[in-house]
Nucleic acid binder design. Structure first.
Lengths: 142, 142
DNA sequence: GCTACACCTATGTCTTAGACACAGGTCAAT
DNA sequence: ATTGACCTGTGTCTAAGACATAGGTGTAGC
């Protein structure tokens, strides 16, 4: 199979498959005539593993490490358990940040609903943002 | 003031200030002797605007556009109102994605709690991920 | 066989918002 | 004058692909 077909089968873009191939986390054979890549069923299974891992929040670097462990005939499972805990913590942090961001955005929109547009002057670029930033507590706790 | 002091005053890193200076969204004077940048109080106010905008989810490119509008003596407010709506929608999408990701992660961790580690074999890299991917519905609706 | 032409391919470059490395500058204490 | 701690600008790097482009494939019509 060639890249497009493989991609369509797994619901990802051809560029994604090319990317995995480029960084050698996927290693199809190359047709020496036109240098097209030829993906076997085993390659597809391999890609399926990669896609599933990505869907669980693993980075591509994580996946490389997991595969490396398996290539040494060691069980990658302890590594997998450890990494997903770490990634879950990060996700939780992002989640909190996103909630805070959304709160700031909706608060700003609400605050701006009742005030008029205004031309910029010497010390103001946009009075809406400028006035909103007054209420922002920029502490160093981060 | 020099970069570190400015950064500390606004609760960002010196690298962040240097970055804004590099892309010319901040334009301090340069000391011709040592090519150190010298930030005036006006520069600090300008940076304050940038930091506030970033805190509202605007991209640096957005901020450039807003400043460009203001430089043409046009009110940037309509632009600002428009952009924040767009960014809020994106944030909402990210939010949904993050919720779904977190659900997948916790589901995987729960599922893996009761199954043993296992060595990789010919057709499996990590049976935990592999078995989890079975339950994944990879549809094309995205 | 030849030529269009639609579609596909690999490769190189670009993206964000800074973080990091590093060679050199500053400045107060000696 | 020299040490040494700290600071500076500049160049490079990051993640995970997306995009641009020159060239290949393969079918249809002649």
């Amino acid at each position: 199979m060639r890249v497009k077909e493989v991609a369509k089968n797994l619901g990802v873009t051809a560029d994604t498959v090319r990317f995995y191939t480029r960084i050698q986390v996927l290693n199809p054979q190359t047709n020496p005539h036109n240098s097209y890549k030829e993906y076997t069923q085993a390659d597809v299974e391999h890609l399926k593993f990669i896609v599933a891992s990505r869907a669980l929040g693993f980075t591509v670097e994580d996946i490389k490490n997991i595969i490396a462990k398996a290539d040494e005939h060691e069980s990658p499972c302890p590594t997998v358990r450890h990494i997903i805990e770490k990634r879950l913590e990060e996700t939780e942090r992002q989640f909190q940040n996103l909630i805070a961001l959304r709160a700031r955005m909706t608060a700003a929109i609400a605050q701006w609903e009742n005030i008029p547009d205004r031309a910029p002057n010497g010390h103001m670029i946009c009075h809406m943002i400028e006035s909103f930033s007054e209420g922002l507590n920029h502490d160093a706790s981060n």
